[in-house]
């Protein structure tokens, strides 16, 4: 008795949209980082679910790589937030708008 693939996909979508919701509504850069993690993991769920669905191991391995990349991303992201805070004394993403036109 296995769970049908639809539910995995719906789960990953829900996770993704939650992450998206965070990005769209939050202003704290740290929250942004967390939301992005959520979205990445939504992708991971998809990868693993479809790996299982197709009986192919590639998706599983790929999910591992995604996690590694997420770690790298967090490292850089945190560094950026650090600089952000140092320069603006704030981690509100709506404050640093000087790099537009």
């Amino acid at each position: 008795m296995t769970v049908p693939i639809e539910y995995y996909v719906l789960l990953s979508m829900a996770l993704f949209c939650i992450g998206l919701f965070g990005i769209l509504t939050r202003r704290n850069a740290l929250m942004f980082l967390m939301s992005v993690e959520l979205m990445l993991n939504a992708a991971n769920i998809n990868l693993i679910a479809f790996a299982f669905y197709h009986g192919n191991l590639t998706g599983q391995v790929f999910a591992l790589f995604t996690m590694a990349l997420a770690a790298a991303e967090v490292a850089v992201g945190l560094g950026i937030i650090l600089v952000l805070y140092r320069n603006f004394r704030d981690v509100d993403v709506t404050v640093p708008t000087t790099m537009r036109w």
């Binding site: 296995t2 049908p4 639809e6 996909v9 979508m13 829900a14 949209c17 998206l20 299982f52 669905y53």
Partner: peptide, 23 residues
């Protein structure tokens, strides 16, 4: 985000996935 979820969910539910998981 909610709208995106609704749309994607509709699409997924309309997709004819094979009920069998290869595993």
């Amino acid at each position: 985000a909610v709208a995106l979820f609704v749309i994607m969910a509709t699409i997924v539910l309309n997709t004819g996935f094979s009920p069998e998981m290869e595993g």
